[in-house]
């Protein structure tokens, strides 16, 4: 599945390992959350970076023990109208998680900007839309009213812009 990161299509360096698949001896792997619970000890010894697929019916608190060891969290969208993962993404970022936050599943180009703003920085996308549609879609709006969003340089945060002389707002790291 094509992967977008930093506004570019890249080859996915990560391997998805299912619940029943045997663990590869090394390499960066993404496992289901259930496997994290079951095989945490083995996984901590894995030679390579560790990522998890975390569904939107689990609570963010459930991740807290694992977070320091995780380099990637993938949040699948079961349908593009199911917006739970937007909140989950923000909660995860609010814990201080700085690894890759990946959107997967049923994702539309027109949602990429919102996803990036709440903290996603990688997108598993389909070939249903042309590459240029995917790449252009995340910058349709040049500004947002909400504060504390993840945004590339040049995307304005309206309230902060209007009150530049106010108490300096802790800038979020730029996405990507």
């Amino acid at each position: 599945m094509p992967l977008i990161k930093n506004d570019r299509f890249i080859d996915d360096p990560w391997t998805h390992v299912g619940l029943e698949d045997s663990l590869p001896s090394s390499g960066d792997i993404i496992v289901p959350y259930a496997r994290l619970l079951k095989e945490w000890d083995a996984l901590t010894r894995h030679d390579g970076r560790l990522g998890v697929v975390f569904t939107n019916i689990d609570r963010v608190e459930a991740l807290s023990l694992f977070l320091p060891r995780l380099a990637l969290i993938a949040l699948p969208f079961p349908s593009f109208t199911d917006g739970r993962a937007y909140s989950l993404a923000r909660q995860i970022r609010e814990t201080g998680f700085a690894g890759e936050l990946r959107a997967s599943g049923n994702v539309l180009p027109d949602q990429l900007q919102f996803m990036r703003q709440v903290g996603f920085d990688a997108f598993e996308v389909t070939e249903r839309f042309a590459p240029e549609v995917w790449l252009g879609a995340s910058r349709r709006m040049s500004l947002a009213y909400q504060r504390g969003l993840y945004r590339p340089a040049g995307e304005a945060e309206v309230w902060s812009e209007r009150h530049r002389d106010a108490e300096p707002w802790l800038e979020q790291p730029h996405a990507g």
Partner: peptide
């Protein structure tokens, strides 16, 4: 109105 306009977290409630 401003805060809720295209709120990225709350557009697919």
């Amino acid at each position: 109105r401003q805060w809720s306009s295209l709120h990225p977290e709350f557009s697919y409630l």
